[in-house]
């Protein structure tokens, strides 16, 4: 198992009620594994999965993501206000 630090923004932060948390993931820790673990904990995040991007260590992640122990994963939802 590895541990990653997850950071939340905007609506997603309001759903989780916390700014960040540590999440344990089995290996290989792909984006799919990450979302499965996270939505197990917060089922309400399921609808945001397709529209929110993951940023690993302040860099946008591409499709074949593999998380490592200690990575910081930001979930960036689109916002539209102006």
């Amino acid at each position: 198992m590895i541990r990653v630090r997850v950071r939340f923004f905007a609506m997603i932060r309001e759903i989780t009620g916390v700014e960040d948390l540590w999440l344990e993931l089995p290996e290989p820790a792909t984006a799919t594994v990450f979302w499965e673990q996270l939505t197990n904990r917060y089922p309400e995040l399921q609808p945001y999965r397709h529209q929110s991007r993951l940023a690993v260590n302040q860099e946008y992640a591409s499709g074949d993501l593999l998380l490592r122990d200690g990575d910081e994963v930001g979930i960036i939802p689109p916002v539209s206000g102006g």
Binding site: M11, P47, Y48, H50, Q51, R53, Y60, I76, P77, P78, V79, S80, G81, G82
Partner: peptide
């Protein structure tokens, strides 16, 4: 590249629904 797809409208409130701190914009 940042947001390939728009979210379903009901998931993201705008300023009228969600409110906004006046100085933020």
């Amino acid at each position: 590249d940042l947001f390939p797809e728009p979210p379903p409208p009901e998931l993201v409130p705008g300023c009228a629904e969600g409110g906004v701190l006046g100085v933020l914009p």
